[in-house]
Amino acid sequence: MHLAYPAVLAALLFCTGLYGVLARRNAILVLMSVELMLNAVNLNLVAFDIWLSKTARDTLHSGQALTLFTIAIAAAEIGIGLAIVLAVYRNRGTSDIDKLRDTAEGPDSGAPAAEKAEATA
């Protein structure tokens, strides 16, 4: 199989993920998009590992090994991410990223505090 197929597929996956991260408002969908981007990278890693081992320049399959690490770390990351989203949802009643603007630097620094107080109430 030519290298172009997995590479194009990975690029499409990555772009879909990027679009999701930038455009989606639901935090869970943003996390899912992040997973898409990670998997696009995994696909690239595996594909190039095969391509390099064919030319006998890499016999250790370090690309595939790295993919395993990425999967493990992605699992941990998504676990923490979902836990945070759940905690935020329980606390605020929403997981809309557009409404989570506590770190905003406004001309009146009292506004976020008031917003937060409103949210906790």
């Binding site: 990027l18 991260v21 943003v30 990223i97 989570l100 603007r101």
Partner: peptide
């Protein structure tokens, strides 16, 4: 500079991209 800091994470990521 502080005005750019809107609190919207997606804006930040867009700028990063």
């Amino acid at each position: 500079v502080r005005r750019a800091q809107t609190g919207n994470v997606q804006t930040y990521v867009s700028a990063l991209l």
